[in-house]
């Protein structure tokens, strides 16, 4: 059998693929964070809670409305996006003129309130959410058994990441958004409604988190803690990628997913710190992140 770094090639391939799957979640979540930070300059600590809300929205829609997974995949991000828009309009927008720290503290507090509320009603163990029947089962790839649903996660997350990147970098709306960040008063002078753009951006970022939440629901237990478990890693991904860099967030998400997956084979005990070690090294060598521009 072919060996690579002392482990069989087949096992190595399997771990690479798993890294890619986990990377999909990191990429989707860090993308939303990067969009919000890049355009609003808000460090959105409520991102993990919004991811959790997406999963719970799917669960509650299924429990009380009999809504299927596919509909929830569209509906949950819309619902979470709308609530995020309300939060932005009524509260967060008041903090833009202040130091970044206030936005961070506000979203952090918001996350604690949301998670605490859900823990009160649903307990820490959470609830199971079944995978859609069309994607249940697994395919044998020869080197590993790939659950069909996980394959779908990679495809769906890649598609959404590329679409979001294109929306911001390649469309007129995206151009307005970017311009509004650079110089809001000038853009406003051109007759563009900047506050509305910012609300939309925050809703989009939250919607992306909710989308990742629905994708995650059948794999992980839908639990109030699911967001806080993943959010710190996602922040590290954004920092490594370069704060605010959209492409950086996507690429780094996948790369770090793979790095973490491989660590789980070679030295499992370090698997939850490897990302932070990489973050420290990147910050020493390239303080603006791999894809960030020096400011």
């Amino acid at each position: 059998m072919t060996m690579i770094f002392g482990i069989p090639l087949q096992a190595f391939m399997g771990q690479l693929l798993i890294g890619l799957i986990n990377g999909s979640f990191y990429a989707l979540l860090s993308l939303g964070l990067a969009v919000i930070f890049g355009l609003l300059r808000v460090i959105n600590f409520a991102h993990g809670a919004q991811y959790m809300l997406g999963a719970f929205a799917a669960l509650l829609l299924a429990m009380y409305g009999g809504v299927s997974y596919w509909v929830a995949l569209l509906l949950a991000p819309v619902i979470v996006g709308l609530t995020a828009a309300v939060v932005e309009k009524t509260m967060l927008s008041r903090l833009y003129k202040l130091d970044h720290l206030y936005g961070l503290l506000f979203t952090f507090g918001l996350a604690l309130v949301i998670e605490g509320t859900f823990r009160y009603f649903f307990g820490a163990s959470g609830k199971p959410y079944p995978a859609p029947s069309a994607l249940s089962g697994a395919s044998n790839l020869g080197f590993m058994v790939l659950p069909n649903y996980r394959g779908w996660v990679v495809v769906a997350s890649l598609a959404v990441c590329i679409a979001t990147w294109a929306l911001i970098e390649r469309t007129k709306l995206g151009a307005y958004l970017r311009a509004a960040t650079e110089n809001p008063s000038l853009v406003q002078a051109f007759g563009i409604n900047v506050p509305l753009l910012l609300t939309l951006t925050y809703a989009l970022g939250a919607g992306l988190a909710a989308f990742a939440g629905v994708l995650a629901a059948p794999i992980y237990q839908v639990s109030p803690l699911m967001g806080s478990n993943i959010i710190i890693v996602v922040f590290a991904v954004v920092v490594v990628g370069g704060m605010g860099s959209i492409m950086g967030a996507i690429v780094t998400g996948y790369l770090l997913g793979i790095a973490e997956g491989l660590t789980k084979v070679f030295y499992p005990e370090a698997s939850n710190i490897v990302i932070f070690v990489i973050m420290a090294i990147v910050l020493i060598l390239r303080p603006a992140g791999l894809f960030g521009k020096d400011v």
Partner: peptide
């Protein structure tokens, strides 16, 4: 045996090792 950190969310990597 494989040691995983407390509050790990994804076990697929460890499970594949167990399977192998």
């Amino acid at each position: 045996a494989v040691r995983h950190p407390l509050a790990t969310t994804d076990y697929s990597s460890f499970l594949l090792q167990a399977q192998a």
